[in-house]
Write a protein that binds this DNA or RNA. Structure first.
Length: 661
DNA sequence: AGCGAGCCGTAC
DNA sequence: GACGTACGGCTCGCTG
């Protein structure tokens, strides 16, 4: 009897919306986890096979795959109905790896969750040769295509025939491989390049002759991992976590397919501003007049050392900041570095990803369900700068302003958990000590307070009214006795306390505090001790983790995802961060179940502690009610403090979001 | 030319 | 062991 279907696809590329599968492979697996059948077919031509597969999709409840979300996108792009996938069970073998493999082994940099890598490591199967052959052939097809493009320009009389061989190679590479970065240099080729690509699409794996010969290998590898790990996963009781991840698969797929709408004009305007400024800002070595590029760190370090007369540890922004007054190059490099980052990572990056959809331009990401040890989602939308970049011309480049409300929507909403990890840390102190850390708890709620009228008073001192504890101020006061809010430099001291709180929560000790805060060792030590006095519960938690790693082979997080590790230092963070990750996964499904019958709401984005939505223009009373209901759904009660979402919204751009009242 | 390590800068 | 988790771009050196 067929219990599972393993699915894999070969596609024209990696874009989850634009690309399509030219081969679909599947394997059928029975209740004993035996692979009973493997099949591959072309969904556009093998109609009988396609119908058979479509029938299987409807009757088999569990889909297995390696990075299964991607293959579901491809099935949708091939025309299979979305309704087949909404309530399926998903077993992703990459996620299984994260749940089953010892976590100290995973922390090793050589551990990767790619199918081929896992197959080598855990199945002893090396299919590198097969993959290599495919890559070589595609690479060859691309070279031919590139040459053909150059020939096209030559035929049209647009190519500069006096270039040296080196210059020629550089130019055609820029035009062919990095067009979005360099197109401003080749305006005369833009039209013909577009026409050429339309008539001669770039080759894809669909054009590689021997794909079919190797296509079933991945099904066998995926089955191998599934069979190897499934019983173990159940026996170590990670199956509930697998189900939690599985339930988030469909919500993430529809979020990914919504994409983010881009204001292309604004992106291009900002690109022009940056180009103009970059053209007049150069780092020139005064000794020889040669230009050094911002990425040439070794050369820059040497130049900074020459100019400052100091021995430096690197060439990053901290180093530059130290020597700005001594090195003119460091000062200009600071400015260029910012602009370069925006230009390469964000502008070129977004142009590379952008696809026209109707009369909009959109970018799509895919969230990686197996990208982290802790269980966090990862993805490339997690790092858009919050603060605008100010140019010397007075212009401001604000990346979040490029992302606008989609055409048919009216709002973008952002439900953001407030101080998520601190609240989870507080819950851990309660689990470990039997009661929460008093100061932490009272930062978020009137814990152990008595309500008199509509005010709260501390149980141990009914004359003192409760107000939320200032966590950063508390560390500061313990570190610097005698200094409080009345001190003229309070803001400065509190900043040190705040930085210490974050660093110590991540596991920092005095030497790193000293380095990061640029204070002397005694001050760093005082700050760390200030933290310890302020939050004795957290100190107890760290100690508990240290004991537990030797008294048991694993520690479960607040949602019972287990970490098999003896690394106290990393675990203290994994237990907090991973609990946040699991809460988010859980809530993604709960909120999906709420909006699935309210199609005016759509998922837009998620970044570790927030979920973004779009909403169409619905009556205000209904909107207010539903926002409250989503907020309520997202909240999570714990013993002493709750996790709550703040709500922000915009009707224009991401950069302009404001509090929802 | 392709690839990987190392550096840098951004997010939570 | 000693500041956690990520991603993307660039340069440089190695390889064939």
């Amino acid at each position: 009897m067929v219990k599972y279907i393993i699915i894999d696809t070969e596609t024209t590329g990696l874009n989850i919306i634009n690309d399509k599968p030219f081969l679909i492979q599947y394997g059928l697996v029975d209740e004993n986890l035996q692979l009973t059948q493997t099949t591959l077919f072309d969904p556009t031509t093998d109609i009988k096979e396609r119908q058979y597969f479509e029938n299987l999709l409807q009757i088999i409840p569990t889909i297995v795959g390696h990075n299964i979300k991607f293959d579901i996108h491809m099935l949708i792009n091939a025309g299979f109905k979305q309704s087949y996938f909404v309530d399926k069970n998903y077993i992703d073998t990459a996620v299984m790896a994260r749940l089953v493999v010892n976590h100290d082994e995973q922390a090793d940099k050589t551990f990767l969750v790619g199918l081929k890598k896992l197959a080598v490591r855990y199945l002893g199967i090396n299919s590198a040769d097969e993959e290599h052959k495919l890559k070589v052939e595609l690479s060859h097809l691309n070279s031919v295509h590139k040459q053909k493009m150059k020939d096209h320009f030559i035929a049209k009389g647009l190519w500069n025939m006096s270039l040296s061989r080196t210059e020629e190679t550089k130019e055609i590479n820029q035009i062919y491989n990095s067009w979005n970065k360099y197109y401003h240099l080749y305006a005369h080729l833009a039209k013909e390049r577009g026409l050429f690509l339309k008539a001669n699409p770039a080759p894809t794996y669909a054009d590689v002759s021997n794909v079919r010969a190797y296509a079933l290998t991945d099904i066998k590898l995926t089955h191998g991992l599934f069979k190897l790990w499934y019983q173990k996963l159940v026996s170590i009781r990670q199956d509930d976590t697998l189900k939690r991840v599985s339930a988030a698969v469909w919500p993430l797929i529809i979020m990914e397919r919504k994409g983010m709408s881009v204001d292309l004009k604004r992106v291009l305007d900002d690109r022009n501003k940056l180009l103009a400024e970059l053209a007049v800002c150069k780092i020139i070595d005064p000794r020889n007049g040669e230009e050094i590029k911002i990425g040439q760190h070794a050369k820059l370090k040497e130049l900074y050392e020459y100019e400052s007369g100091m021995s430096l540890i690197g060439a990053d922004k901290h180093v530059r900041n130290e020597i700005q007054h001594l090195s003119a190059s460091a000062k200009i490099a600071d400015y260029i570095s910012n602009m370069n980052k925006y230009m390469t990572t964000y502008i070129t990056g977004i142009l590379n990803k952008m696809v026209p959809v109707g009369n909009e331009f959109k970018v799509f990401t895919d969230y990686n369900l197996a990208g982290t040890i802790t269980g966090r989602l990862s993805g490339d939308f997690q790092q858009f700068p919050k603060e605008p970049l100010e140019l010397k011309t007075g212009d401001k480049i604000n990346i979040r302003s490029w992302f606008i409300v989609p055409n048919n929507d009216k709002y973008m909403f952002y439900f953001d958990y407030s101080q998520l990890e601190l609240r989870l840390q507080c819950e851990w102190t309660n689990i470990v000590c039997g009661e929460p850390d008093l100061n932490m708890a009272r930062a978020f709620s009137p814990y152990k307070c008595m309500k008199i009228g509509d005010k709260f008073y501390l149980e141990e001192d009914l004359n003192t009214e409760w107000k939320p504890v200032d966590l950063h101020g508390l560390t500061t006061k313990h570190a610097f006795p005698g200094i409080d809010e009345t001190h003229p430099d309070w803001d400065h001291y509190r900043k040190l306390g705040k930085m210490t709180n974050f660093a110590v929560n991540y596991g920092a000790s005095a030497p790193k505090i000293q380095e990061a805060l640029k204070v002397d060792y005694d001050t760093a030590l005082a700050l760390v001790n200030g933290y310890k006095k302020a939050f004795p519960g957290v100190v107890a938690f760290k100690k508990w983790v240290g004991n537990r790693v030797w008294s048991a082979d694993h520690i479960p997080n607040l949602f019972f995802r287990r970490y098999y590790s003896r690394n106290r230092h990393q675990l203290q963070n994994w237990l907090v961060q991973g609990s946040g990750a699991d809460l988010l996964l859980l809530k993604l499904r709960e909120v999906f179940n709420y909006i699935r019958n309210r199609p005016h709401w759509n998922f837009l984005i998620t970044v570790h502690d927030e979920i973004g939505f779009t909403c169409t223009d619905i009556p205000e009373a209904q909107l207010r009610q539903e926002v409250n209901e989503i907020k309520e759904l997202m909240s999570y009660s714990m013993s002493a403090v709750d996790v709550l979402a703040d709500v922000e919204y915009t009707t224009t751009t991401w950069a302009d979001k404001e509090s929802w009242k």
